[in-house]
Amino acid sequence: MTTQPHAIRNGLLLGTLGVVIFALTLPMTRLAVGSAAAPQMSGVFVAAGRATVAAILAIVFLAVTRAPSPKRGDWLPLGVVALGVVFGFPLFSSIAMRHVEAVHASVILGVLPLATASVGAWLHRQRPSAGFWACAGLGTALVVVFAVLRSGQSGLTLKGADLLLLLAMACAAVGYGVGALLSQRLRADHVICWALVLGLPLNLPIALAEYPQEAIKIEAWWAFFYVAVFSQWLGFFAWYRGLALGGTVRVSQVQLLQPFLSMVFAVPILGERLDALTVGFGLAVVTVVFVGRTMPVRNTLSTSKPTPPLGAKSS
């Protein structure tokens, strides 16, 4: 059955909402962990603590919505989601953000949309057209070039923090792709909730052990609660539903906007400057995303013709 245009449109809107929420993650994480010169919370505490807070909220939500227990075959994919977006991405990115600025982190994480699309295409057995991959590659290149230009003299060097960010990117791509697949048979909000519950027995003791003993600035605590409630929980409600409705391959390209939104949010949060370079590259990426969403995507299990423009996938 071909995905309907209105479902794709709603998927893109929900995906964009999720990206807006996630765009604050890097600036807020940086604010929570501080810098090497002025440290705040440890990256391990931020990662485990945010997942613990979100898991408690998830338990309440699952009870209120009377969520049925996942079927036996769903627990393994839920475990993969937990490893990707409950453990891997928060841990690796939180540790890395102590040592790199948000702008530099966007250099590495700028390839996340392409990674997510690749995972989605493999999981859904889709074959995006050459035009789609050209748009995805061009958009990713624009993000990387922009971030390199903004990084100044620091350049693009693979240091320890960069390798952690690459691992975080890989974890997020897998977690997004598998979560989107699960969201086709489970409620999207229940997917992230069950994944958080799976991770609670490990995250809770780690969070308690890593709880900061020194004084922490109030703004760091506000940042922590943002990444716990929004980045780790509510953002996935919109994101997984958007991926399920519009198709992982296509909706994932909306993530190309995330680094630029992060820059906008970083102005009041971290004191970064918004200039003509940011606006110019942002408009270029918006154009590429718009063109990319019109490209056909073929289901490799079907002998039918490729889906027309705006048709994200077949199922």
Rank of each mutant, 00 (worst) to 15 (best):
Y226I: 03
A223C: 10
I56T: 02
N203F: 05
R150Q: 12
L270K: 03
A63F: 15
A215F: 08
R187N: 12
L198M: 10
V297T: 09
Q153A: 15
A38W: 05
T3Q: 14
V100A: 09
T52V: 09
F237K: 05
A223E: 01
K159R: 13
W221R: 00
M97D: 04
A215H: 13
Q153H: 15
A38F: 13
Q40A: 12
L270H: 04
L164I: 04
A147Q: 08
R50C: 05
A121Y: 03
G155H: 11
S69H: 07
A180L: 08
K71Y: 05
A209S: 06
L57Q: 06
R72N: 09
H124Y: 07
G179T: 01
Q40V: 07
G139K: 04
A180S: 13
A48E: 00
S42D: 11
V197A: 00
V80I: 15
A220V: 02
L76S: 12
R30G: 05
G160H: 00
G18L: 06
T248A: 15
V289A: 10
V86Y: 08
T140W: 01
L163W: 11
R72Q: 11
P201I: 06
T157K: 08
L123R: 09
M295C: 12
R72T: 12
W222C: 07
V254T: 09
V80F: 10
L208S: 05
L167F: 11
I269E: 01
L234H: 04
R72V: 12
G139Q: 02
V178C: 05
